[in-house]
């Protein structure tokens, strides 16, 4: 691999060199430019060892194993993540690529890097707080989503207080950062079904009081994406008890009925998919039933006119017909 002129550095050497360079960058002494250059160079070196390039193959497993071991022993992953903002634009992406590759490393069924990070959760918290900073937010997002694939790491993240910062991150005004944060947020709440069902059940009040703010956000994309995710969460059978709790609260029903007639057709449509759960519930609590009954005529008329142009969407039309029928029949229940 004649990429860097002289003969190849060993994993221990390159990790040591990178660590020294990052330390110099952190100290911010006079030789910052030199440090910056050394960081970039060694990052590319490590990246090419792991991934190979268009011209060269990745290094043999034994070299990668040594490299990983050096990274754990030197605590370099945390150091890199903590100093991400000081590393140059391309170097930041290289950090993410190195991190993600090392994270995927497996020995049989074990994931040694995941085990390592479990003992160093600061890595995760530092990454999560990366969304506070424009210049590293997307890089941190790439690493966080890779971490979220592992249940053990997802668990540390959702059960931390920092998790609730996501409700702020997904609403920032810079679209790409908000979107990226939302993807991570969604991954954390949907990837590991049993983990997230348990989490939502235990933390129901706190999570849904925060979630309410997203549904009322002034940012159209936040409102639209959070409503869509809500529908997905409620309709997932793992979240049955969360769903039952959600559809028993008349405030939630009112919100959905208002969203049904929002200006945005997309939001109307997504609201329909949450609203239908309230109506389809065979054991409606009295406050829910009362609201539906009070608006029975209006709802029937409204739903009859609702998105009539979606004639080719069979499932939607079946569901709509079912809802109209259910609401019509509510009356007879009441009268009897």
């Amino acid at each position: 691999m004649p990429l860097f002129g002289k003969s190849q550095k060993s994993p221990a050497e390159v990790v040591k060199a990178l660590k020294e360079a990052v330390n110099a960058l952190e100290r911010g002494d006079k030789k910052v430019e030199k440090a910056q250059e050394d960081v970039s160079k060694n990052l590319v070196h490590i990246k090419n060892m792991l991934y190979g390039t268009a011209e060269s193959e990745p290094q043999a497993d034994i070299v990668v194993a040594q490299l990983a071991q050096e990274l754990y022993n030197s605590n370099l992953l945390l150091l890199l993540v903590q100093n991400l903002g000081r590393i140059d634009f391309e170097g930041k992406k290289d950090v993410a690529q190195v991190f993600n590759n090392i994270l995927r490393r497996q020995i049989g069924t074990r994931s040694p890097t995941v085990e390592y990070i479990c003992t160093k959760p600061e890595i995760l918290f530092t990454l999560m707080s990366g969304y506070e900073h424009q210049d590293i937010a997307l890089n941190c997002g790439t690493m966080l989503r890779e971490c979220a694939r592992y249940e053990a790491l997802a668990k540390i993240m959702i059960y931390s207080d920092d998790f609730y910062n996501f409700f702020r991150y997904v609403e920032v005004s810079t679209f790409d950062i908000a979107s990226d944060a939302f993807s991570t947020f969604k991954e954390l709440l949907t990837r590991h079904k049993i983990l997230s069902a348990e989490f939502l059940e235990v933390n129901y009040d706190k999570v849904f009081s925060h979630y309410q703010r997203l549904l009322n956000s002034e940012n159209y994309v936040t409102r639209r994406q959070s409503l869509k995710l809500l529908g997905e969460l409620l309709l997932d059978r793992h979240n049955f008890s969360v769903m039952t709790r959600y559809i028993s609260n008349p405030d939630n029903l009112k919100l959905m009925m208002n969203m049904l007639k929002e200006k945005s057709r997309n939001i109307q449509f997504e609201a329909f998919h949450v609203f239908k759960v309230f109506v389809a519930n065979p054991n409606k609590p009295k406050p829910i039933l009362d609201i539906l009954l009070r608006n029975q005529e209006k709802l029937i008329e409204f739903l009859t006119r609702f998105h009539t142009d979606r004639s080719e969407d069979e499932q939607f039309n079946d569901e709509k017909a079912y809802l109209i029928k259910q609401i019509k029949e509510l009356k007879s229940v009441h009268e009897n």
Partner: peptide, 14 residues
Amino acid sequence: QLANLDLQSCHWDF
């Protein structure tokens, strides 16, 4: 806005 005027005109009774 015109396209959706129809649906928005409805007022729920809470």
